[in-house]
């Protein structure tokens, strides 16, 4: 009996507040916008019994999805979301790998401190970390002041409100997610493997490519997914650092819902975003699964 309660409580909670809301989104994405409260139709009326359900089902259609395929705005938003997420993931990897590598190579007594320094920003507010870049990247911001002062540029660069600022923001905020899995993969690595590679004729650099990189592959893959997946649906960064022409699907969904109050279309946007995310999520789970099996 106790076991039943133990299982039932979290199970039902997640059913009610995760699975059911999801089905509602799916259902509304198949409905039509209406000038009512709530602003969509049809509404399921269970008091009418079976005929009510039938009438309800017959009114559902894929009209919103057809609309999404026809309006280039949405297409471009999806494509540009994918593009921005992909580019920033690669950039984060390029920035994060050397840091993770250096941390794994660091003297033992330094490791704990370095790890703390990587984790610390993760505990500080995401919003504040994004906000801190506004003052740096704006036209009269610190970066431009610095570059003008050194004489590298003569007129201020426009960075804020462009995609570049979005890349910087994503790399900055998601960097710990890239560093940590790579670090833990590199840290586990047995140092004698590199010595063995050198002993067998590798130079330092080829030992890095042939041994270190393959052995940290699981960490790299995990890190990339941990950046790519949330970056794809990101809302705060494009709306604070991006410009009006920065199209990201999270922002489109938000505006569709709050500004246009078109709930059915917002729901359809969400459903498609989710379908796009299924692929990387499944791949990510496979990677984790494989890693767990190898560790055992």
């Amino acid at each position: 009996m106790r076991r039943f309660i133990l299982i039932a409580v979290p199970y039902l909670w997640l059913m009610a507040l995760f699975l059911v809301p999801f089905l509602i989104v799916l259902k509304i994405s198949l409905s039509d916008i209406a000038l009512s409260i709530p602003p969509y139709t049809p509404q399921l009326d269970l008091t009418e019994g079976w005929s009510g359900i039938k009438a309800f089902l017959s009114q559902l259609d894929f009209e919103n999805f057809t609309f999404l395929t026809q309006d280039p705005l949405y297409w471009r938003a999806y494509v540009s979301s994918l593009q921005i997420a992909l580019i920033s993931t690669v950039l984060t990897l390029l920035v994060g790998y050397p840091i993770a590598y250096a941390m794994a190579q660091a003297p033992d007594e330094w490791r704990a401190t370095l790890l703390l320094l990587v984790i610390l920003p993760f505990w500080t507010s995401f919003l504040i970390r994004v906000y801190s870049w506004i003052g740096i990247l704006s036209n009269e911001g610190f970066l431009n002041q610095f570059l003008l002062w050194t004489g590298i540029i003569s007129t201020p660069l426009t960075i804020l409100n462009t995609n570049t600022a979005v890349y910087i923001g994503i790399v900055y905020t998601y960097l710990p997610f890239m560093i940590l899995p790579i670090y833990s993969a590199l840290e586990k690595m047995d140092g004698s493997l590199l010595e063995a590679a050198e002993d067998l004729g590798c130079s330092r650099l080829s030992a890095f490519w042939l041994v270190t990189v393959p052995l940290s592959k699981a960490g790299i893959v995990a890190g990339c997914f941990l950046v790519f997946i949330p970056a794809l649906g990101e809302f705060v960064i494009p709306s604070l650092l991006g410009g009006s022409d920065t199209l990201m699907i999270g922002k489109v969904l938000w505006e569709e819902f709050f500004s246009n109050r078109d709930w059915p279309v917002a729901s359809a946007v969400a459903v498609i975003l989710l379908l796009i995310l299924v692929v990387p999520i499944v791949l990510f789970q496979r990677n984790e699964q494989k890693q767990r099996e190898l560790d055992q």
Binding site: S192, E195, A197, D199, L200, G201, C202, S203, L215, K217
Partner: peptide, 20 residues
Amino acid sequence: VPPNKRAVNMMFQSYALFPH
């Protein structure tokens, strides 16, 4: 002479077999 240029090979205590 660096290790990779020596006609000397080593068998490591941990064996250091490449797991991948």
